[in-house]
Design a protein around this nucleic acid. Structure first.
Lengths: 212, 212, 212, 212
DNA sequence: CATGAATGAGGATTCATTCAT
DNA sequence: TATGAATGAATCCTCATTCAT
């Protein structure tokens, strides 16, 4: 088994304010993320991570209480990156007409999932159920974001349950993208798929307008 | 007396010719599935499985070449069960009008995902990429099934790319259901969600009719 | 968290950079050699070796990729020791008359085989055929050495096929000594046996001189 | 480890006088010998032997108290076969002149070692030190046989210590042949080697005649 | 007598984690 | 702080052996 998770005591370790430690932490996190993405959770042993980061195993434990803590930190950073990509891809959507806005949304969500799909999956595989919080919280936030975007369009798109619609869209699109990424990664570049996703969104919005 | 020896992976193990053996195999598979579902892959050690099944570890290895083989068998059985549920929930759909048929499809896919969601997730986490075949094959089959159902409706639903639409629907719906199952399992009983899924399907179908 | 995973055999292990490590390695090798010699290969389990060496099993695996690697290292050291003994026992043979030289050779080969006969046999029993290289290479080297010694004596001993004669002598003498060591170890001190070996060598040399 | 050898109690099992059992025993012994010879001691597990013999593991234990007992029986039969070959190759040596007799002896001993060299080696590897008796006894007998043959030649070969000479010859020749068999099996057909062995014997005999 | 399912002690190996230097 | 040698519980898996049928 990879992570026995022998203990509960959540020992905090120093949070590096000095740059020296920050560099070290970054190296460790980066090394772990790379191994995770390239070889999967089983290969991401603490010793392997330390070796690839060029630090000793002792140093790793100076900054992370245990393996799980390291994984959680990776999750945190991964989510932050997804968020940044998403935010970037969504800016200036206010003025757009609905079809253009939908195109924008589609490509934004696709872009977000492209950030580091292998890492994304590896994190899902390696984090214990009780530590997916960060990722879950992000997904909730995305749904809220899309919901408010839907509301923001006003009468243009008068939806009876915008949150619900947002949930369906975000989770549906997300699932579609993740499944595709796992089984046919190259297909994500197929314009036909983008069109189909667009149709799904537009159709769902249109259909949701009348009855909820 | 001599040295151990690393041996070539001879995968096959005895397949039970006595009924006694079949009972044992079932007990093992059942035990493993339960542990997997309740405590996740890390807890499903071969020893734990044997103990819960009430057999010795040696017996487990009499029927399964290694831990992976056991997991694969569980995957096979799980998929078979999903398939059975899906097939059962889809019978007699030919005569139905589109909205009723969609309702039927939605509840069928939901039912299918309800089979053993924790186990489903655990299998995805534990099986190495090269052993998800069985599950992947099933998902492909479901998409094909839905595609042919779409084609089968004829002019009623004249779609330019029925396979693509089926893919989008099945993966989208699947992702939506799985995410919901993981994060808000009780919500899957919410009629509002069912309606929203219906809207998504109907909308997607309607929108896909014109441009592909 | 994730599944165990069978991994590619990465053979190399840390080679000690601190002297502490060297001490540990020596202790492990020494312990293994002792068990091997006293109780045979079956008793030389990695756990038993670690215990006798006074280190944990983990430490053993820090220095040896697997059990075979440890055995091979023992083989290497054993051969080195035999070589040293042989070289020591053969120095200054050039000036000697043939009978004296033969006496010297006999006692050298006997001494070489006395180094650690039980270990010698245990190694032959435990090493897989593909890892007897080191030992075989040494035996070849010994034959070559003796062959060149035979050639070196010049007209004094004009042999038609010195390599062949060396092979016969070394293998014959070796087998004689090993068999005796195994069945009647004390007899190796019997001067009569030494004389008989001498007779065998001198006789063989004499007889080989004419026809090859 | 291959054979834990957990116990000492030498439980006798039925010795089959009826032909049915004899056939079974033969099948088992034959199967074990083949596996031993082809794949080495580690592959000769009791289950593998039973499978190859076409009987159940239970049946194997009906005839052999434990794995060691089976190995010992194989040893016994192997030795008997060697003995038969040796005896056959030595018949009618009385009338021969010394050189011809020596040729005969050489080819007899070579033939004896050719019987089943892989099995021979496997037996040496797998039998615990305390169970090599049968093989050792045979070797002693061979030495005695040769000694008496030497004595039998009378004045023709007036040796001061015929037993010692026989020992040296038999063990030396044996070692030479076994080493060659292991390292350069094809070379045993080389006529030059036969000549060299002949020279060794003749020379040894000649040299031993004067001083012992 | 034969069968083969079941047993479980024992062996090799891994890896998260600690701690003396 | 950093290091890396050392730890040992935990895991997978094998195989000689038993015994109910």
């Amino acid at each position: 088994m990879a992570a026995p998770a022998r203990k509960k005591p959540v020992k905090r370790r120093r949070s590096p304010i000095q740059s020296r430690g920050q560099v070290t932490v970054d190296a460790i996190v980066e090394a772990a993320a790379q191994i995770l993405a390239k070889k999967g959770p089983a290969a991401a042993t603490t010793n392997a991570v330390a070796a690839r980061a060029g630090v000793s195993i002792g140093t790793l434990y100076q900054y992370f209480a245990d393996r799980e803590a390291l994984l959680r930190e990776i999750g945190r950073r991964h989510v932050a990156e997804m968020q940044a990509v998403l935010a970037g891809a969504l800016t200036g959507m206010e003025g757009l007409a609905l079809p253009a806005a939908v195109d924008r949304l589609v490509s934004a969500i696709v872009a977000m999932h492209r950030v580091a799909p292998r890492l994304h999956q590896a994190l899902h595989q390696s984090l214990a159920r009780d530590h997916l919080d960060t990722i879950d919280a992000f997904e909730v936030a995305v749904e809220a974001m899309v919901a408010s975007a839907l509301v923001g369009r006003g009468d243009d798109l008068d939806l009876p349950h915008p949150e619900l619609t947002a949930t369906v869209l975000v989770r549906g699109l997300g699932g579609l993208i993740r499944t595709t990424l796992r089984r046919e990664p190259e297909r994500l570049d197929d314009p036909a798929l983008a069109l189909a996703m667009r149709a799904m969104i537009l159709g769902t919005l249109g259909e949701s307008r009348r009855k909820g």
